[in-house]
Amino acid sequence: MNVAAEGESTGFNIHPMDQFVVKPLFGGDTIEWYTITNVTMWMGIAVLAIIALMVLGTSRRAIIPSRTQSIAELIYGFIYKMVEDVAGHDGVKYFPYVLTLFLFILFSNLLGLLPKSFTTTSHVAVTVTLALMVFLGVTLLGLYKQGIGFLGMFWVTSAPLAIRPILAVIEVISYFVRPVSHSIRLAGNLMAGHAVIKVIAGFASMAVVSPVVVGAVTAIYGLELLVAVVQAYVFTILTCVYLRDAVGGAHH
């Protein structure tokens, strides 16, 4: 991996990947596991935002909700209904975890859209951890709840006997691809969107196209806003879908 220092001489100065660099917040060069970095800061901001919305917003416990309380209740009800509909009644036990995932991803995505901010969910490390937690949790839960019967989902009994082994191989592969697609989807969407904004914004140094660039960045920003919410939704609903396999909600 060699990166030539080119581009500087031409007037364009586009570094779309710079925004993803993890750097220590209080000086120093080495990043140990405990170092306070910009990752720490933006995750902390996400936590504070979630607390502001969900804790402070609902602190009045009003019967007739205020605006923030309505939003908090809306999110709560939306995710609750999703878990109940998709994962079944047995899945409602895991609702707190699903809500945690949804809020963390949603707030990370949205905070990442602030100018100069750092998008924690655009990092594969973060999304892979999230997806692996879901994958391992669901697999262990399924084995614990259904025992060896959990492996029955790889043996498609509705198919003819001859092709069942082939289907089983495909099912196993697709099962293990789940965490990969689950994590890469989130990180890839955000990374691509932010990089595209940076690349397009970089063209603004050319005066002729700069008005077009402003319009394009605005449009892509709107698209990214949609992507931020939709990806949080998709990650959450896929978690519910996987959870359904584990708790056996598919049989009801």
Partner: peptide, 29 residues
């Protein structure tokens, strides 16, 4: 609606894989 989004997510994931391969070729190889 939920099925729609799940379906779109699955289809989109494969596109994201190709994007990932492009990125890997560009930056990681």
């Amino acid at each position: 609606m939920a099925n729609l989004f799940v379906g779109i997510a699955f289809a989109e994931a494969l596109g994201i894989f190709s994007f990932l391969i492009a990125l890997l070729l560009m930056f990681a190889v």
